[in-house]
């Protein structure tokens, strides 16, 4: 059970959500944005998170947008993972998020919760890093657009919408995920890759403390003067963040799996170039 009392606030516009947070801050209260509840509820039950006020973003219509126009695809932060997959508006992202948790959970997990996850995986970011996605951040500066690759949320700020350039929605892609054993589970490694302008772009989750996309890694993977094995070996060596070791796998095993997945990805994408 959740062993603390909290105020549950349902704003109807973005501004109110932001204001409520500031108010709580001024009163010395701990406020948390609530977006689907899949993380808050599980963490609160285990005593790993507490709040005096929870601010629900699901009641704000802007956070539910799922719309395609001639410039970009707009996905609200409160759109669920299953809604994204079923819309088929962005196949790469639909494929990436389909591998997160299980179907029933994906009815509730929102993209906003996943990209702001308290856990290290944030696998939805894989489908956003490689396509130059942007996000709308709500904070003291009102509504502000930022590139997702450079995203840094200040305290009290939250993401309301995600934008993907129209021209990047149908890029050839491959997304692969390996877990400890099951189809469902946290990643040992999860990789998404696209071909854009004849070059491969690739993003990783589960390998290091945060998901990432690294230009230097991509330069090596796109270096046609090297053999595929050589490219993969050098690319993995180039990763500057430490490779993690946890319940799902050791560092060396993660490197092995990454090499396997990159091999498969390069095979598949070379054909699609």
């Amino acid at each position: 059970m959740i062993a603390f009392d909290f105020e549950y606030y349902q704003p109807l516009i973005l501004k109110d959500a932001d204001e409520k947070y500031r108010q709580a801050r001024l009163l010395g209260e701990k406020a948390v944005y609530f977006n689907g509840g899949t993380e808050f509820i599980t963490f609160a039950r285990k005593g790993q998170v507490e709040a005096d006020v929870i601010i629900d973003l699901k009641t704000i219509p802007d956070c539910h947008r799922l719309a395609l126009n001639e410039d970009e695809l707009v996905i609200g932060a409160a759109v669920t993972l299953n809604e994204i997959t079923e819309s088929d508006l962005f196949p790469l992202l639909g494929d990436v998020v389909k591998k997160i948790a299980d179907h029933t959970s994906r009815n509730k997990i929102t993209i906003g919760v996943n990209i702001n996850s308290r856990l290290m995986y944030k696998e939805a970011l894989l489908g956003l890093f490689v396509v130059d996605a942007e996000v709308e951040v709500i904070g003291e500066n009102g509504r502000e657009r930022q590139a997702i690759s450079k995203l840094k949320l200040k305290e009290g700020e939250f993401i309301s919408q995600i934008f993907i350039p129209y021209k990047n929605l149908q890029l050839p892609f491959v997304s692969l995920k390996r877990t400890k054993l099951s189809k469902v589970g946290y990643p040992v490694v999860s990789i998404a890759a696209v071909v854009k302008d004849d070059e491969i772009r690739v993003a990783f989750s589960g390998l290091t403390a945060q998901p990432f996309r690294c230009i230097k890694v991509e330069e090596i993977l796109n270096d046609a003067t090297l053999s595929i094995e050589s490219r993969i070996e050098k690319a993995i060596d180039k990763i500057s963040m430490p490779i993690i070791k946890d319940l799902n796998g050791s560092e060396d095993y993660r490197k092995f799996v990454t090499a396997q997945l990159l091999w498969e990805i390069l095979q598949k994408l070379e054909v699609k170039k």
Partner: peptide
């Protein structure tokens, strides 16, 4: 370290 169902793996339906 793995005292919940998310982290204590089991063979799932379909496996």
């Amino acid at each position: 370290e793995n005292n919940d169902i998310r982290t204590y793996g089991m063979l799932r339906y379909g496996e």
